[in-house]
């Protein structure tokens, strides 16, 4: 999850919603720690001004998992 800091009003709602404590207020605007974020979307569902959006890293990882075929290679050899 990523915060658009131009839109964020700094109400702090997402800070206490985050189940991973990944969100902090920096200069009274929300900031999401990308290492801790698990892309659950809880913050986005709570944001009153729609400042949080998903720049999801998981589809890429998923795609990698789907296309790579390490087991197949092993099985064939």
């Amino acid at each position: 999850m990523i915060v658009d800091r131009e839109i964020c009003v700094g109400c702090g709602a997402c800070v206490n919603l985050c189940p991973r404590l990944a969100i902090r207020l920096i200069d009274d605007k929300s900031f999401i720690d990308q290492v801790s974020c698990i892309e659950c979307g809880t913050c986005r569902a709570g944001c009153g001004v729609d400042a949080i959006f998903c720049d999801c890293r998981f589809p890429e990882i998923l795609l990698l998992n789907l296309t790579s075929d390490t087991y197949g290679k092993e099985a064939r050899s």
């Binding site: 700094g10 702090g12 709602a13 902090r24 207020l25 200069d27 009274d28």
Partner: peptide
């Protein structure tokens, strides 16, 4: 408090 300026109100 988590805010920088304590008296500012950002919450509805």
């Amino acid at each position: 408090d988590i805010k920088k300026e304590l008296s500012k109100v950002h919450r509805s």
